Simulated assay, not measured.
Amino acid sequence: MHIAEGFLPPIQAAAWTAVAAPFVIHGARAVVREVREHPENRLLLGAAGAFTFVLSALKMPSVTGSSSHPTGIGAGAILFKPPIMAFVGMVVLLFQALLLAHGGLTTLGANVFSMAVVGPWVAYGAWVLCRRLGAPMEVGVFAAMALADLSTYCVTSLQLAIAFPDPASGLLGALAKFASIFAITQIPLALAEGVLGVLLFRTLRKVARPELTRLGVLPKGATTSKAAQHA
Rank of each mutant, 00 (worst) to 15 (best):
L171E: 05
E40F: 04
T52I: 00
F51S: 02
T223N: 14
G194N: 04
E37I: 09
G173T: 14
F87N: 08
V141D: 04
G119N: 05
A163M: 09
N41V: 02
A135T: 06
Q12G: 12
T106R: 03
S56L: 05
A179D: 13
P82S: 14
Q186C: 11
A97W: 00
P61Q: 05
S67A: 05
R209N: 08
G173W: 10
A97Y: 03
E34G: 04
F201V: 03
S62H: 06
P167A: 09
L98R: 09
A231K: 13
G27K: 12
A50E: 02
T17P: 13
L94G: 10
A4K: 00
S180G: 12
L218M: 12
N111T: 13
V141F: 00
R29T: 12
R42T: 13
R132G: 12
A13W: 07
A146P: 03
G125F: 13
V35Q: 01
L199N: 02
H26K: 14
A21Q: 10
I184S: 05
E5N: 01
E211Q: 14
F87S: 10
A47I: 07
R131N: 12
H69D: 01
T156D: 03
G104Q: 00
G89R: 09
K81L: 09
L58A: 15
L8R: 07
G216M: 03
S114V: 14
A135K: 01
F95A: 11
A228K: 15
H2T: 12
L98G: 06
T152S: 08
A18Q: 11
L8K: 06
A15I: 05
E138G: 14
G76K: 00
A179M: 06
P82W: 12
V88P: 06
V217R: 14
M85K: 00
V31G: 13
R205Q: 11
S67Q: 06
T106N: 09
A176D: 08
V198N: 00
L189Q: 07
H102D: 06
T156S: 09
L108E: 01
A222W: 13
G119C: 11
V139F: 09
A148H: 08
L212I: 08
I73H: 03
M85T: 04
A116Q: 05
A86K: 02
Q159G: 04
W16Q: 02
A231T: 13
L129M: 12
S56C: 00
A222E: 07
A21D: 07
R29A: 13
R132H: 05
V198M: 02
S62W: 04
A168D: 10
P165E: 03
P22A: 15
T64A: 15
M60G: 01
G194R: 07
R131Y: 07
G49Y: 01
A13C: 07
V128E: 14
T203I: 04
Q12E: 14
S151T: 11
A18F: 10
E193D: 07
R209C: 07
A174H: 04
A30I: 11
S67P: 02
Q96V: 12
I25L: 01
S157K: 01
P61M: 10
G134A: 10
K206S: 15
T106C: 02
E37V: 09
E138H: 10
S169L: 14
P10E: 00
V122F: 05
P70V: 09
L100V: 13
